[in-house]
Design a protein around this nucleic acid. Sequence first.
DNA 1: AAAAAATGAATGATCATTCATTCAGGAGGA
DNA 2: TCCTCCTGAATGAATGATCATTCATTTTTT
Lengths: 196, 196
Amino acid sequence: MAQEKKEKRRVAIMEAAVKAFSQLGYHACTMNQVAREAGVADGTLYLYFESKEDLLIKAFKHVIGNLMELLDKELVQFNTPADKLKRIIELHFQVMENDPSLAGFMQFQLRQPDPSIRQAIRRPLSSYARRIEKVIEEGHKTGDFRASLGARAMRRLIFGGMDETVSAWCFRGEKDSLADKAGPLLDAILHGLAAK
Amino acid sequence: MAQEKKEKRRVAIMEAAVKAFSQLGYHACTMNQVAREAGVADGTLYLYFESKEDLLIKAFKHVIGNLMELLDKELVQFNTPADKLKRIIELHFQVMENDPSLAGFMQFQLRQPDPSIRQAIRRPLSSYARRIEKVIEEGHKTGDFRASLGARAMRRLIFGGMDETVSAWCFRGEKDSLADKAGPLLDAILHGLAAK
DNA sequence: AAAAAATGAATGATCATTCATTCAGGAGGA
DNA sequence: TCCTCCTGAATGAATGATCATTCATTTTTT
């Protein structure tokens, strides 16, 4: 049906946009480049999205949505908070490593200065944050994690550590596998830097 | 002398640029806005800087230079690696809290997608990274820090945690003092999330 | 009165967006 | 089967707005 085809193309355009925006960022990327990446004409983009900004926001929601869906499916398979945390970090790194353009896209969009974009991006992003905090709070309840450390502050450390690791990997052209960095990062987060 | 005056104005323009760029980011900010912030005419900017990009890069080096100078003066006053690490985090938070436009500026510029800007920014940034890694390596030597955690990976966790905390404070409009977050963050980094 | 600095209107380039035009393919008729 | 006609989708050249940058002119300094 025509409806299905349209939806396919809508998704294809969003995925082309992720790729195109990930090269040099949103501002430096022209709609013409997105159109070429998607294999359509400039004007066609406007049959599917209202504006460049609309396309960015929808594309961001699309990729975060995918990641959250994947995460939810994965997390139920683990029981302890520590295992869940481990899985979050591993999955984050795996997904970014499998699709470097997604990694670049996220890196740039997370620090989008434009307020209306920031605003639109806040909700999907905080759905990710909330999932991390949930795991930390669960650890507080089970006694696996120290209750003296607030869930929000810990989430910032975890997310910041993951994000900085991905950033180094994707910009500073680190050669080695991103997935290999999950173990050490988890160890540092769980047990800290200090010797006993 | 004319020389001194020129230098004063050069610095004033860089500081105006930091302020102007911090509002909506580099791309959305016009040279006219920078000029108005600095109290000069558009054309005057080009008597002091080659281009908008040149101004951004020089301004970034300027602020990082200031921060490094301050950091070096402070760090010599502490002996143990843990105290030094504590001071790094405190200072970072204090500086950003004292000058929110600096915080915004750094947040945006750290994720600049433009490759020539990234390239120009790399060196001053890694001078910061190296200072953090030095402290970690010192801790390895004294036995205060676990040697099994690589200095580079730990630096990413520390820097990422600080950066994410500043980011949350300056974008998500967290009300409470940034400086207050230094203690808990250090605790988490040193002793980890896991209960004993 | 030179020289040096500063000015800001004008220039030219770069896109996001629009819209008059073209195209593709399905319905129906012979 | 072949031939219109019709409709919604797609096209891409043209438009208009937005700046970074320049430079002829003015102001300030020496």
